[in-house]
Nucleic acid binder design. Structure first.
Length: 222
DNA sequence: AACCGGCTCAACCGCAGGTGA
DNA sequence: CTCACCTGCGGTTGAGCCGGT
């Protein structure tokens, strides 16, 4: 039997106050991320560890970009979604400074509607933007960012990096990168030699320059 | 000015996978 | 091998905001 993640009675819920934020930030700056379960007590917060983790990852992390998504980011999301489905954390991992929650919200509020309006699906046509993609509807095994999978993705830069850093078996080839607006580099982590070996109906070429991608999008009227 | 409906986004919930005892 | 715990993920919810009437 699984215990509840926290004692409901002593837990504060809802929006975070500035004081709570400050406590969390102070604690993490001192002790680093991790041990979310014990963090609230140690930091003097009446929140459950999950809530702290979420608050930190989605809102308080210093490397968060915030603000609205650019065209390049939107385009990348569409492409990655076509490739990965609702694997928001993986998609977010390709977007520096963005969180899975942010990407998910943006998809649901902007992109999905846009695509539905167009009466089209994503670039692959494999996924219906109108329907949520449940866990059962997983990306085919071959596409999963798994250590055994030649198509590898760098995990989102959260605690995974800390926990799994020593394991270089799943090192990602990030040598190929996506040039955004001639400036920023987004690392796709897709190994080119394998990208076309599976799901040939999917456009796996995530290494396209954004200019090309945007061009295509304009062509299709997005 | 008041009401209403749609939208956004922070936060919660439940489940699944990983891991250590 | 099994079980319990921890963490991360994806779906969903709801409060607040905003624009239209």
């Amino acid at each position: 039997m699984r215990k509840p993640c926290c004692e409901k009675t002593e837990i504060t819920k809802g929006a975070w106050s500035k004081q709570e934020d400050q406590k969390l930030v102070d604690y993490i700056q001192k002790h680093g991320e991790g041990c979310w379960n014990s963090l609230p007590k140690a930091a003097g917060l009446r929140r459950c560890g999950k809530s702290c983790r979420l608050r930190w990852i989605n809102y308080l992390r210093p490397d968060l970009k915030r603000g609205s998504f650019g065209e390049d980011e939107e385009d990348l999301i569409i492409r990655l979604h076509a490739l990965l489905g609702n694997r928001w954390s993986l998609i977010a991992g390709r977007l520096p400074g963005r969180t899975d929650n942010e990407v998910k919200n943006y998809w649901n509020s902007h992109i999905r509607k846009k695509l539905v309006k167009m009466g089209t699906t994503t670039t692959s046509t494999a996924l219906d933007p109108k329907k949520p993609h449940h866990r059962d509807n997983k990306v085919p095994l071959l596409m999963q960012p798994d250590a055994r999978n030649p198509i590898l993705f760098r995990p989102p830069a959260t605690t995974l990096d800390q926990k799994r850093a020593p394991n270089h078996d799943d090192e990602v080839d990030v040598s190929d990168s996506m040039s955004i607006n001639g400036g920023n580099q987004l690392q796709t982590g897709v190994i080119m030699s394998n990208k076309s070996c599976c799901l040939p109906d999917l456009n796996l070429d995530l290494t396209l320059s954004l200019q090309l991608a945007v061009g295509e999008r304009q062509q299709s009227g997005i």
